[in-house]
């Protein structure tokens, strides 16, 4: 699913201008706690979170995610936005809850990210 469809489905808006809306999102992962996110294979995934600090972007960077979607109308800190810009990671925001965001994207056919089966 392309980012533009993700935005339609979740009523999301870009937090950073100049997004490439044709970026392909292949799966989703949702969490506020980043501790365990890296256990999952997040390459090309949409990371859904309500955590506003820069560690969301750091996690996104380490795992090569496709985009980050802030749910519950959470506003990322200026440090987060700056980091997203530096790293070139698309950053979106929606006012609907994380639960509803997941529900809508799941209904639209996006699968869940799987844990790394092996690190190879």
């Amino acid at each position: 699913m392309r980012l533009r469809e993700v935005m339609q489905v979740t009523r999301a808006r870009p937090i950073l201008a100049g997004l490439d809306l044709d970026v392909e999102v292949q799966a989703c992962f949702a969490a506020d706690l980043m501790s365990d996110a890296l256990r999952y294979d997040l390459e090309h995934a949409l990371l859904i979170s309500g955590l506003v600090n820069p560690q969301v972007m750091r996690t996104a960077e380490m795992a090569d995610v496709a985009a980050v979607l802030m749910a519950r109308g959470k506003v990322p800190t200026p440090e987060s936005v700056q980091l997203a810009e530096e790293l070139g990671i698309p950053l979106l925001g929606t006012d609907i809850t994380m639960y509803e965001t997941c529900g809508r994207l799941y209904a639209a056919g996006l699968p869940s990210c799987a844990p790394h089966s092996s690190q190879e």
Binding site: P54, E61, M62, D64
Partner: peptide, 30 residues
């Protein structure tokens, strides 16, 4: 918590720069 992760970020960028296989870079970064 604003600067946390900076070191790993720079390690990752350096490895990418050095042309290391992206899958290995990701393992090191994580």
């Amino acid at each position: 918590f604003n600067r946390a992760g900076r070191a790993s970020s720079q390690i990752k960028q350096t490895l990418n720069r050095l042309g290391v296989d992206p899958r290995i870079v990701r393992r090191v970064a994580i």
